[in-house]
């Protein structure tokens, strides 16, 4: 069963996109969210160890979502954190690279509430099946 109290970090450089994702998550019953505006500010938050799920954009100034993903995967404490990428980057090569870097799900913008729910459900179903 999906834990609705899990703590989710939303990383996007546009505050409006963070607000949209936060609202969609709230509609899905996830109220425990925090925000960061790029990889650089997200990483120290993640390293506190309080987060159960990361939703990140790719193209951000400072530190991109892909670099954040790589940093997460190479940090022993965070390596297993599920990561969902929500991005406008839509090239096949990019999706393959994100997959190789260890993404758990990939959503292309523009997206909708149904897609977000499907991907989150799928990520946690798969994690449970593998646990």
């Amino acid at each position: 069963m999906l834990n609705k109290d899990m703590k989710i970090l939303i990383v996007d450089d546009f505050s409006t996109m963070r607000r949209i994702i936060k609202n969609l998550l709230r509609d899905l019953g996830f109220n425990n969210t925090a925000e960061a505006d790029d990889g650089k500010t997200a990483l120290p938050q993640l390293q506190t160890g309080k987060f159960d799920f990361l939703i990140t954009d790719w193209n951000m100034p400072g530190m991109t979502g892909l670099d954040l993903l790589k940093a997460v995967r190479s940090d022993a404490k965070l390596a297993k954190l599920p990561v969902l990428m929500v991005t406008a980057e839509a090239k096949r090569d990019q999706i393959v690279e994100a997959a190789n870097a260890g993404i758990n799900g990939y959503i292309v913008k523009p997206f909708n509430a149904v897609t977000l729910k499907e991907k989150i459900d799928k990520i946690f179903e798969r994690l449970e099946a593998n646990a």
Partner: peptide
Amino acid sequence: PTAPTGPA
């Protein structure tokens, strides 16, 4: 080839 380029 995989550097971010923003929306297509």
